Computed example of a mutant assay.
Amino acid sequence: MTDSGPRVLVVDDEPAIRRFLRTSLDAHGYVVFEAINGKEALSAAAAHRPDLIILDLGLPDMDGIEVTRLLREWTQIPIIIVTVQEQERAKIAALDAGADDYVTKPFGMGELLARMRASLRRAASPAGEPVFSSGQLTVDLGRRLVTIGEREVQLTPTEYDLLRTLVAHAGKVLTHRQLLRQVWGVGYESETHLLRVNMSNLRHKLEPDAARPSYVLTEPGVGYRLRTNA
Rank of each mutant, 00 (worst) to 15 (best):
2 T>I: 15
3 D>H: 14
8 V>K: 00
9 L>T: 02
10 V>Q: 00
14 E>G: 04
15 P>E: 14
17 I>D: 05
20 F>A: 12
24 S>W: 03
25 L>M: 13
26 D>M: 08
27 A>P: 07
28 H>I: 01
28 H>F: 10
37 N>E: 12
38 G>V: 06
38 G>P: 05
40 E>N: 10
42 L>I: 14
46 A>I: 13
49 R>V: 12
51 D>Q: 02
51 D>N: 04
52 L>E: 00
54 I>M: 07
56 D>L: 00
56 D>C: 01
56 D>K: 00
57 L>H: 07
59 L>H: 12
59 L>R: 14
59 L>I: 09
62 M>H: 10
67 V>K: 04
69 R>H: 11
71 L>K: 10
73 E>A: 15
75 T>Y: 03
76 Q>N: 12
76 Q>G: 08
78 P>C: 04
81 I>F: 00
87 Q>P: 02
88 E>Y: 00
94 A>H: 12
102 Y>I: 00
106 P>I: 03
108 G>F: 11
112 L>T: 07
112 L>M: 15
112 L>P: 12
119 S>F: 00
124 A>F: 09
125 S>R: 13
125 S>G: 06
127 A>L: 11
130 P>D: 08
134 S>T: 15
137 L>D: 08
137 L>R: 06
138 T>H: 05
139 V>H: 04
143 R>Y: 02
144 R>W: 08
144 R>M: 05
148 I>P: 09
149 G>N: 13
151 R>M: 15
152 E>M: 09
155 L>N: 05
156 T>D: 09
156 T>V: 07
158 T>R: 03
160 Y>V: 09
161 D>Q: 10
163 L>C: 04
164 R>H: 13
166 L>I: 07
171 G>D: 11
175 T>P: 01
177 R>M: 05
183 V>W: 07
187 G>M: 04
190 S>Q: 10
191 E>Y: 05
191 E>K: 11
192 T>P: 08
194 L>D: 03
194 L>M: 09
201 N>K: 11
201 N>T: 06
203 R>F: 09
203 R>H: 07
205 K>R: 05
207 E>F: 05
208 P>C: 09
209 D>N: 15
211 A>W: 01
211 A>Y: 02
212 R>Q: 14
213 P>W: 10
214 S>P: 01
214 S>M: 11
215 Y>K: 06
216 V>T: 06
217 L>C: 04
218 T>W: 10
218 T>A: 14
219 E>N: 06
224 Y>V: 09
224 Y>T: 10
224 Y>S: 10
225 R>M: 09
225 R>P: 06
227 R>H: 14
227 R>W: 07
227 R>N: 15
228 T>I: 06
228 T>C: 02
230 A>T: 15
